[in-house]
Structures are given as structure tokens and as C-alpha cells.
Design a protein around this nucleic acid. Structure first.
Lengths: 327, 327
DNA sequence: TTGTACGCGTTATCAG
DNA sequence: CTGATAACGCGTACAA
């Protein structure tokens, strides 16, 4: 930078201003600097800038894994927004471990990131404390039922699942299964399970643990788990699931000769494109990871620093798409 | 760091060594420093470290988009490997634009990243030059036919497509369509198209542009594009595609009353789980983004600096899974 | 095994 | 609108 300054006949400080706030310097100097920069290919050193200014234009996102499309959609929305605003994105995966999440948050805070995006609202106590103390703008994505660390964007998974379950009950279903991702380290699933139980209770129906199962996000797992569940609870007449596992349930029903939705109703979650590939399209709860990610980016950058700013919650809601796997 | 040093009764340099190379300092000091670090929650400032040492433990990856599972798989493999080795990951998306890629490479080089992963081997001349000049370890993923900038990991898309096309010809198909992602900014598709043409030529079959089409990665696009193609070329008897578009083709065949594979054979690419969801499972070319990403991370970190190290090419190959949509 | 001196490339601050 | 000066927090090189 010093060299560029010398060549342009100005001080280093003016070159610095040229990059940070070009409008603040005289037109003549601006053009002179622009020429030298173009000639030399000079680019400011971000590390020096960070060290001196104590901030970066990097945002961090921590997801359980990026091979679930709901997460990669969110990251895609985030990346797009940040790039448009000249910010970079760092990413880390924690495999649903709160402990790893804590370490990653610590690392990112050390990097002086401009913002952090987490999935869900279940974090270690220390994670929450570090984030609060740092004042770093923070978004919790995909669940909003708890008081946020800073900003929460998403939906009430509890409300969505309760709503869905109640409607299945209203449609006459009495033995409703719940097949989802494993609830460990996944508060979205835990909230949905609570909503499911709440709806059963409201209707005076018993909660049967034999009708609840968790499995990794693969179509075949949905088939396998349902197969087992159906063997032990042949009277099962509905399954609440997600789009991937739900597809497996649907395939398994076909293999078992069960009519969908007459014998077994099935509902998914996410509204992935594959949920409408089979002849009978899956009824599902539609949410948009991309939209959440986009909004997260916007709110993060808008919130320069959190001093004395009140927490915010954005409920993006959900929509139940009634299609062919429910009566 | 100075404070920690004072509290532990050592010099700052010893604290620095404690973090970089703990084995180099005495056991007594090590324990004393560990205690102070635990008490204070001290964490070294990465910006200062980068500024001083002129390197980081950050790797950058630039993908066209992360909502294709082949890319998110690769990123997942990369992230996992890097995390295990205590490195961070920065990510950027370029939407198949070489110009954006160039800017992103420039930004990442300024950040002194320890390595860069790009998709494909088609880059702007300046991108290549910057990368070569910087000496930053670089991986080009998913295509290996060209001389690499540094390291190339993946497969020969040309060979895979030529192989596949030849076999369809051997199976008696003569009017073979090619439906893929748009070739603009996508050298993998361009190479596959070349392989397809080469196979036709070898067999003495004419190349018909009316049998070639590109569309975005959505199931319904596959259906739409095939529908059009079939209307204009009713004698089409096979389609080479990818798993997502291929599923659409398959669905559209059902709607049009065409028998698969008797009337129309279909092949995909990628081996996604959804490709085997329909009654007739898609014949497909299996490749593993996750494996490529993992290997990229390993090779990148192994290659400390590129001074005078020869370029490397790793051919991970491909496997054709002959299933139900080919005779 | 440990310590000292110096510089890495910027920005904040204040003066002009 | 512009410039001088002093940090920012660490690692390198060398010495002990």
C-alpha cells in the first residue's frame, strides 16, 4: 500500500480510504490511485486490515451436514446474498454435535467474523455465552420457538407438526406413526415430536413409543423403518415423516400391498422436488431453506453491531401441501 | 498473548510455541501455560498470525452452485477432511461464470489461503496465471482431460460419455439423444458431448443437433425437454442424460406411453439415490463427489508449497451401473 | 529449551 | 480532503 501511495503521490492513508470509502477523497487523487492500482494489480491484505480494524467481511455458517438439501439450500441463499454484498462465507459442519459446534463458534469468533449463522436453537451453554458476549450478529435458522441468542429465522416446528397431526386425526386416523431423523442433537425434530404428542393428547389419543422411530436421511431407511414398525403395529394408519424418509415409506407400502392413502396416509416435510415424482405425490410441509438463508444474510449485514439491539424473531411459517398421500 | 506469557511467567514467544509446536517447550512451562489459557479463555488471533507468517489454515472452494448434490457432496468430503486436520473452509459460488471465478480466486489469494479447489478445468486465462504465479496448491475437480494447473482429480467425462454411447450403439440404438445441463461454463458437459459425438462418428452415425439439448437441473425440465425432442424426432430410441433430468425423461416416457427401455433407453449420470426410486431403476454412470472432495483435501494439505513440484492427475474413474432403463 | 528485536500491512486518531 | 503517527497481535531470525 505504501508503494502504491508513493507511485500515486499520496499518503498510504489516502490509498486506504480509496478502498474503504472512495467518496471521501478528491477526484484527482482517486483517478491517480485507480491507475496505479490497475497497473500494479495491488490488492489490500485482508489480514492486516482485520488486525488493524478488528473486523472482517466474512460470515460463518455452521450446519450439521451439507448433504441435506434443506441445509445446502440455506447455504446457497446465504452465499448468494453475501456475494452480492461483497462478503465472504466460511462454512463448517458439526455432524449434529453441540460440542463441535462450540469449538467452531470459538474459532469463528477468533476470526472476528461479521456474523454467524447456526442451525436450530439448541446449543451448548458456552456457545450461547460466547456469542452473546462477543456481540457478533448471530442468526439461528429453521426453528424459532425459543428465545433467540440474537436473531431467529424460520418456523415453529412444534406448531407445524401439531397442526399436521391434528388434521390427520380430523381425517379419522388414530394410529399415527412418526418417522424422522434421529432426534439427538436435532431440536427441529424434537419440537416436531412435541407437536405430534401435543396433538395426540388434545385428541385424547395415547402416545405409543412403538410408533416413533428415527433414521438417517436416506430413502431406503424410510422403507426399512416403516417395514419394522408395520410388522409390530399392523394397525398403523398414517405416518408423519420428511420427504426423503416418506418416499421410502411410500415405496414400502407398495411392496407390502398397502394402499396409500386408504390404508396408510403419509406426510413429508420440506417439499423437495422428488416428493412429487411418484404417481401419488407426497403430501408435505413446505418450507424454504433458500429464503431463510437469503434473509439471514440480509439481516446479519444490516445489523452492524448488536449493542443494545433487541433480539428479533422472524416467523417464515410453513404451508401444508395436501397432495395424493393423504385422503 | 503477552498477558498470558506474563501470567505464566514466560515470554510471549514461548506461548506462541505452545500453540504451534507444544513438543518444543518444557513440560513445566507447557502445563503452566495450559492453566493460564484455560483460565483466561485466550485464543490466538488468526489475523495477526496470518499477517506475520504470511499463511493461513484456510482452504477455499469455488463451486458453480451448491444445490447440485454432486457439488455439495464434494464440499462435504472436503469439509470433513479439513476439519479433521484443523483447517477451515471458505466457500464461494460462481453460477458457472468464469469471470466471477476469477474475482473469487483473486480474493482468496489475497487471503493467503492454504489451497484452492475449483470445479472443472475451464478457467479464464488470468485465473490460471494468478494461480500458477501464487504457488498456492490448487485442485481442479471432476474433470482431468486437460493439463492441470496443479492437481486434477476426477474422471475423463469424454471417455465416460464415449464409452456409454458406444455401448448403446452396440445395443442397437441409432437415434441417441443427449440431454444435459447447459454446456455454457460447464466443461464437464462439453467433454461428455465430445465423447458422445466421438462415439457416433466411430460408428458412422450422423450427429443431429436436434437430438441435443440443455436444461437446468430439475426433474420437470428433463420431462419438458424430452417431450419437445420426441415431438420433433419421434424416432429417438435412447437418451443420455444425468440422474435428475433422466428421471424427468423417464416420467415423460410413461406419460407418452413409450416403453422403457424397449422404445427408449435412458441413462443418467451421478448415481444419486433417487435414480433408483422408480419401478425401473435408471442405468447410470456412478461417480463419487464425496470421495473426490476428500482426496482433494488430503492432497492439498500434503502439498505444502508447490515450488518445483510436478502437476498431478488422479483418475478416479467411473462405473456404469446397468439397471432397468437400458436393454 | 527459551528469550529479544523487529517487522508483517493495514486502519484509528488526531491534526491540519 | 489529506497526512503523520501509533498501534493491532503475532511469527521469524537469531542469540543465548
Amino acid at each position: 500500500m505504501r508503494d502504491v501511495a508513493r507511485m500515486a503521490g499520496v499518503s498510504a492513508q489516502t490509498v486506504s480510504r480509496y478502498f474503504k470509502n472512495p467518496d471521501l477523497i478528491g477526484l484527482g487523487n482517486r483517478e491517480r490511485i485507480a491507475k496505479v492500482v490497475a497497473d500494479t494489480g495491488y490488492f489490500p491484505n485482508p489480514a492486516a486490515s482485520t488486525l488493524s480494524a478488528n473486523r472482517t467481511n466474512l460470515v460463518a455458517v455452521i450446519v450439521p451436514t451439507i448433504d441435506h438439501s434443506i441445509f445446502s439450500d440455506a447455504v446457497a441463499g446465504l452465499a448468494q446474498t453475501l456475494e452480492a454484498r461483497n462478503h465472504g462465507l466460511m462454512i463448517a459442519t458439526n455432524g449434529f454435535s453441540l460440542e463441535k459446534e462450540e469449538q467452531q463458534v470459538e474459532r469463528f469468533l477468533a476470526h472476528k467474523v461479521a456474523g454467524i449463522v447456526l442451525i436450530g436453537q439448541h446449543h451448548s451453554e458456552r456457545t450461547t455465552r460466547l456469542l452473546r458476549a462477543s456481540g457478533t450478529p448471530t442468526v439461528e435458522l429453521l426453528e424459532i420457538d425459543n428465545p433467540p441468542i440474537d436473531i431467529a429465522i424460520g418456523l415453529s416446528n412444534l406448531a407445524a407438526a401439531r397442526d399436521l397431526t391434528s388434521r390427520l386425526i380430523a381425517l379419522g386416523r388414530r394410529r399415527i406413526g412418526f418417522i424422522s431423523a434421529p432426534p439427538e442433537g436435532n431440536d427441529r425434530v424434537q419440537r416436531r415430536l412435541e407437536g405430534y404428542r401435543a396433538a395426540l393428547e388434545s385428541a385424547g389419543l395415547p402416545f405409543d413409543p412403538g410408533l416413533v422411530a428415527g433414521a438417517e436421511f436416506r430413502i431406503e431407511n424410510g422403507a426399512r423403518v416403516f417395514s419394522q414398525m408395520h410388522a409390530e403395529r399392523p394397525d398403523i394408519d398414517a405416518v408423519i415423516s420428511n420427504d426423503i424418509l416418506g418416499l421410502g415409506v411410500q415405496l414400502q407400502c407398495a411392496r407390502l400391498g398397502l394402499a396409500v392413502p386408504e390404508d396408510v396416509a403419509i406426510t413429508g416435510f420440506d417439499d423437495l422436488e422428488v416428493s412429487s415424482i411418484l404417481e401419488r405425490k407426497l403430501t408435505t410441509v413446505k418450507i424454504s431453506g433458500f429464503e431463510m438463508g437469503t434473509l439471514a444474510g440480509e439481516m446479519l449485514l444490516e445489523r452492524q453491531s448488536r449493542d443494545a439491539i433487541a433480539p428479533e424473531v422472524v416467523d417464515l411459517g410453513y404451508e401444508i401441501l395436501w397432495r395424493d398421500t393423504t385422503p
